[in-house]
Every structure is written in C-alpha cells, then in structure tokens.
Design a protein around this nucleic acid. Structure first.
Lengths: 134, 134
DNA sequence: CTTTACGTTTACGTAAGCGTCAAGCACAGA
DNA sequence: TCTGTGCTTGACGCTTACGTAAACGTAAAG
C-alpha cells in the first residue's frame, strides 16, 4: 500500500507556529491580497500554495522589501502563462527586480568586507592589550 | 606646488543633493543620533566623517536595516580602540551582524535563483508563442 | 451544560521614517 | 532698504506593518 498524495491543508495556527508569525500577521497579509486561503464556512483553510507564498513573503521581508514590493514579486511566481503582452511585462518586471537584488548584493558584500576589516582591527587591538598585560 | 589637504566641509543642502535625500531626512538622522555635524552659530557644518556616516546609513537602508540597527552598525566603524570589555562586546556585535548579513545573502541568492527560473519559463513561453505565430 | 480551545471580525493603538507647512533669522545683491 | 536665498526650529500629518483588546461563533471534552 503506497502513499496516496492527499492535498494537505493547514489551519491558521499551524502556519503561524510553523513560521513563527502571529495570526494577526497572517490575516494582515490576506487583507493585503498576499494570501487567499479557502473558506470553509468562516474558517480559513490553507493549501500548499498558500504555504509556499507565506514562505516567500517572509523571505522577502528578511530581505527588507515592503509588502507592496513583495506582492509583485510573489505574484510573478504563479502568474498564468498568459498572452504575449503579459509575458513581456513580466520579463521586464523580473529584470527590474534582478537589478534591485544585485544592487543589494553589492551593498551586502561591501558591508561584509567592511565589517571584516573592523573586526580585524578590533581583534588586533584586543591581542595587543592581552599581550601587554601578559 | 602640491595639494594641501584642507579638511573639506559641506552644507546640509550639498550633502542632500549629493546623496539625493531631503534636508528633512538628514536632520532626522541627526535627531536620531546618527549624525553630529558641527555648529557654526546655528548652522550645520558637515565634515568628512559625517559624509562617510551618511553614506553608510544609506547603504544600511538599502539593505533594509532599521535606523536603530544602522546606528549600532555605523557606531562600530568609529568606536575608539577602548578597553578590553568594549572590544569584546564590539566583536560580539560584529559576529551577530555578520550572521544576519549572511542569512540575508542566502535569502538573496535563493531569490535570484528562483527569479532566474521564472524568467526562463517565461521566456520559453514567449518563444513558443512567437514560433507558433510564425 | 458549561468550560476550554480555537477560530472570527471590527477597530483603535503604535513605532518608524520621513513629508509638509509655518514662522523666523542671516546675509548678499539691486 | 527691500528682496531673495538658504538656513533654522517646531509641530502636525501620513503610511506601513502590524499589536492589542473587545466581542462573538463553534465544536469537542469533562
């Protein structure tokens, strides 16, 4: 008897604990159109798609994007194939995002480099201090 | 006749146009303790140190750090050599920052990878569309 | 049948990061 | 002396991204 892939679902609390965010946060993201869980009666039911989107949203947040920016990014991932105009537009958006991300990467690398330098200086000072003290 | 290095200074407007921020923003950063320009009478006079700090602040912003976080980062750069406790603390801060930045880098790389995949799919769809149309 | 757990909406509160006046001083040129 | 230009300090306003009750529904457990 092999595994039958049943489309798994989650409650809001399950997602909240899994990703360590509050219920309020998840509902807020829905309010902003970032998540669209199913409704069974009044209760929210989250599908794998929602779960993936939440993960993407949080990654976007860690990168410092605003929710509006995140919305456009996340929507790129599951835009329907669509017609030519759509595709061209999407490709342009992607190019724009990539440029943004590469700027960030440059900033990030530079900051890490700077930090390493400060650290070295700092460590040298500390070593000198301890040597002198014997 | 060689160049004599005169400590150059800037007005608030000069810095603002150079870094493309508003006067309000620069004053706000001062209010938050991020900048400490000299005062000649009531007027602010910015020295090279302030200019560097402003650049660091803006880079921090591009990376999505809060001003509070930026404050601790920027202050690392020009903390006096100090005594052992200070140095140890500073090294810990640096380690913490580095961990944060490396998490960001991972997120960033993953996002770029994802984006590349979406782009490829998108481009393929577009090509197919154009081929079919002949 | 009541408690407990878990969900819901509505709505006001808040911290961050500035924007945007308002009102005033100082100095340079016509 | 008037006008303009650039600087100053308040001080209120606005948006984002939630926190934090309040008040209520529902379903299983004791």
């Amino acid at each position: 008897m092999h595994n039958i892939q049943v489309a798994e679902t989650w409650t809001i609390a399950e997602l909240a604990t899994e990703y360590d965010v509050t219920l309020r946060t998840i509902r807020f993201y829905e309010d902003r159109g970032l998540l669209t869980p199913e409704r069974r009666g009044t209760v929210r039911v989250y599908h794998p798609r929602d779960r993936v989107r939440l993960a993407l949203i949080l990654r976007g947040k860690r990168l410092g994007f605003s929710l509006d920016e995140i919305a456009t990014i996340v929507d790129m991932y599951d835009t329907a194939p669509g017609e030519e105009g759509q595709l061209v537009y999407l490709l342009a958006q992607i190019a724009h995002r990539r440029a943004d991300l590469e700027q960030r990467r440059a900033d990030l690398e530079q900051t890490l480099t700077d930090l390493a330098e400060v650290e070295a200086r700092c460590q040298a000072d500390l070593d000198a201090l301890r040597t002198r003290r014997g």
